[in-house]
Design a protein around this nucleic acid. Sequence first.
DNA 1: GTCTATAAAGGGATAGAC
DNA 2: GTCTATCCCTTTATAGAC
Lengths: 221, 221
Amino acid sequence: MFKQGSKSDGTRNHILATALRLFRETGFDETTMRDVAAKAGVALGAAYYYFPSKESIVAEYYKYVQDQHLLRAREQFLLAKDLRSRLSAAIHTKLDVLQGDRRLMSALFRYGGDPEHRLSWFGPETREHRELSAQIFAEAIAEQKLPPDVKDVAPTLLWALHMGILLYFLYDKSSEQKRTRKLADGAIELILQARRFISFPVIRPIRKRAIGLLREAGLVP
Amino acid sequence: MFKQGSKSDGTRNHILATALRLFRETGFDETTMRDVAAKAGVALGAAYYYFPSKESIVAEYYKYVQDQHLLRAREQFLLAKDLRSRLSAAIHTKLDVLQGDRRLMSALFRYGGDPEHRLSWFGPETREHRELSAQIFAEAIAEQKLPPDVKDVAPTLLWALHMGILLYFLYDKSSEQKRTRKLADGAIELILQARRFISFPVIRPIRKRAIGLLREAGLVP
DNA sequence: GTCTATAAAGGGATAGAC
DNA sequence: GTCTATCCCTTTATAGAC
């Protein structure tokens, strides 16, 4: 996104930027492709030439979010040494990127329930996105000494937690979504507390069982 | 749904049944109101006379699912005494009701991400549905001796777990969604195991903290 | 009150001309 | 690479039959 170059890239970016602006201001469903084309000063067909569907514009935004998240999280990882700061960096940078775009996220959300959809969060076509997202959490916990089975599944579980927090974020009407920030911080504190328990021999059987269940279900690697 | 009576009820039910059949066979987006009207043998206007929108037909289905779940779960509760059977009844009856309607569920799913939508799962308009759903889980654990704070939040947490299982169900391509059944059974076993730990004094602080966090976030009562 | 027939506004998507 | 013209669909609306 926003890379410059040939003339076509200029038009494409112009249409994209206009569309995202309208989606943010007016909402996804409320914005028509005709609006986008008109405001961008191109014909309807031109908009469809660059974006095969209205949804594909949102898909572009999804990529942008992933890139931004990776960039910002890694930037903060350079200075964050302890687990708390690193988990905090991983989740809060994501919220930073999405702050103000909650209406757009609603449009993304709808793809999640359709296994056949190209943009479904859990479908094969978006596996790369998921893995990239989990990778950020893997980097957050990279230096931690943890039982191997825990370390294997932790990134995916943190990714799942982060998805839950994003859902909360979507519904959070508090100013600047402060409640979500608090929820995230609280969740991190719980993780830190759980981290101490997780290696205890008493916990081992239930831990093994839980991870085994998730593995069998294909929910974790 | 399916209640008989006046002539209008007959037509209404006929349109509803036809629409659901087409949604199941062809998919929600692929089925047009014109298809529904045509297959039901009524004019387009008649279909819109009974259902103000295509979505409102799906909303009707949602009510039907809730009613059926309550009915079937309570029927099984009469014979199920231990916690395992009662949790099993609560979740498996829901899956029974939804079995074969996964395409329809995809259509329902999309409402979940839009806080402004009348049919959003987490919005104020559907609170009754959520509470009714949690009520079934409350009945499943009614006879259990549990710390009061746990007993207060358990129905909501079980409801959340059940929502997660339904998401898995949506994506489960195994024949008759056997994998989801296994996942549900495994989750129940984990709950039984956790049930033994939950009252331990060592666990108390982290438990209090976790529940406090959920309360502050407004996620549990 | 229940429904048919019909039209038309508004919007997603496409074919093909330029 | 861009635009015009067009199709199909949802939805709303209306006039009138039963």
